[in-house]
Amino acid sequence: MLIDACALQLFEDSELQQRVRQLKKVELASVCLLTQETLRLRQPMAVDFADSLRVHQRLVAGLAGEALLVSSSLVFDTLSEAEGFFDMSFKTIKSRMGGVLDTAASERAMRAVRATLTAAESLGGLEAARAYLHTPNYALGGHTPVELLKTSEGERLVLNELHTQAECGPL
């Protein structure tokens, strides 16, 4: 649950949202720098901040539109990859800034960040996590983890594989 708490804290950070909205040119590299800075500066929190019911409630209510760019910046190198993952054009992604996402988009953003932060914790950092997410994995049927994150079942497979690696090495 600590990963979920960190993800929600990141998505709910009003300063990060404002800084993303103020970018003159929206590029994932710029958003990634802002997101990584926010992650470095975040204060540790109690685990009960983001119990499963709270996560559910936040996703149903909808995350801030900036969550699309924040999550994309941690996972993808290009906006075209983000467009494919979220099944929406960059114009639509950008139009969601300052608004609230629907449940499906909120869930996808949460899955992407949850998997990235779990991989970063297991593998020693964000760069290792990004490499892991884009590398075909035998334990995942030869798919890249990011391909599977479009569904909750795929996310479960990715997280189980990461936990297995953390406990006893790769499958």
Results as ranks from 00 to 15, higher is better:
119 A>Y: 00
116 T>Y: 00
43 Q>F: 12
53 L>Q: 15
113 V>M: 07
117 L>P: 00
71 S>D: 08
80 S>M: 11
41 L>P: 00
94 K>V: 06
120 A>G: 08
131 A>L: 10
112 A>P: 10
134 H>M: 08
68 L>H: 02
88 M>E: 07
44 P>R: 13
60 V>F: 11
101 L>H: 07
125 G>N: 08
90 F>R: 13
125 G>K: 06
80 S>V: 13
84 G>V: 04
133 L>Y: 07
135 T>R: 13
80 S>E: 15
137 N>P: 00
111 R>V: 09
79 L>R: 13
50 A>G: 11
59 L>C: 06
100 V>R: 13
50 A>F: 06
101 L>S: 05
65 G>E: 06
117 L>T: 00
69 L>R: 06
50 A>Q: 05
123 L>M: 08
119 A>P: 01
94 K>S: 11
87 D>Y: 07
55 V>K: 02
45 M>K: 13
116 T>I: 02
115 A>Q: 01
63 L>C: 14
120 A>W: 02
59 L>Y: 03
124 G>L: 03
52 S>G: 14
85 F>K: 04
132 Y>S: 01
107 E>V: 03
119 A>N: 02
120 A>Q: 03
62 G>F: 12
110 M>I: 00
127 E>S: 14
100 V>T: 14
66 E>P: 09
123 L>H: 03
41 L>M: 08
97 M>A: 05
71 S>G: 13
54 R>V: 15
95 S>F: 09
122 S>C: 11
57 Q>E: 15
72 S>D: 09
137 N>H: 13
123 L>Y: 03
109 A>G: 12
120 A>C: 09
49 F>E: 07
47 V>I: 11
117 L>S: 00
136 P>I: 04
111 R>I: 09
139 A>D: 06
129 A>C: 04
131 A>S: 10
104 A>M: 10
60 V>K: 15
98 G>I: 08
123 L>S: 03
105 A>K: 11
71 S>N: 08
77 D>L: 08
66 E>R: 12
110 M>S: 01
120 A>T: 05
89 S>G: 07
104 A>I: 10
43 Q>V: 15
89 S>C: 03
72 S>Y: 09
98 G>Q: 08
107 E>C: 07
81 E>P: 02
86 F>Q: 04
109 A>V: 11
45 M>Y: 08
77 D>K: 08
83 E>V: 06
94 K>A: 12
47 V>C: 01
120 A>V: 05
118 T>M: 10
91 K>E: 14
93 I>S: 07
93 I>K: 03
61 A>P: 02
80 S>N: 12
83 E>D: 11
110 M>Q: 07
73 S>G: 09
83 E>C: 10
63 L>R: 06
110 M>K: 04
61 A>Q: 15
114 R>N: 04
66 E>L: 12
63 L>K: 09
86 F>I: 05
81 E>C: 03
90 F>N: 01
81 E>Q: 15
76 F>A: 09
82 A>H: 01
77 D>M: 02
119 A>R: 00
110 M>E: 03
139 A>V: 06
46 A>V: 12
129 A>N: 03
55 V>S: 02
119 A>D: 00
139 A>P: 00
130 R>E: 01
114 R>E: 12
97 M>I: 14
57 Q>Y: 08
124 G>M: 01
59 L>I: 10
61 A>F: 07
104 A>C: 05
130 R>Q: 15
108 R>E: 07
139 A>E: 08
123 L>C: 05
51 D>M: 00
102 D>F: 04
110 M>F: 15
50 A>Y: 05
69 L>V: 09
84 G>F: 00
117 L>F: 07
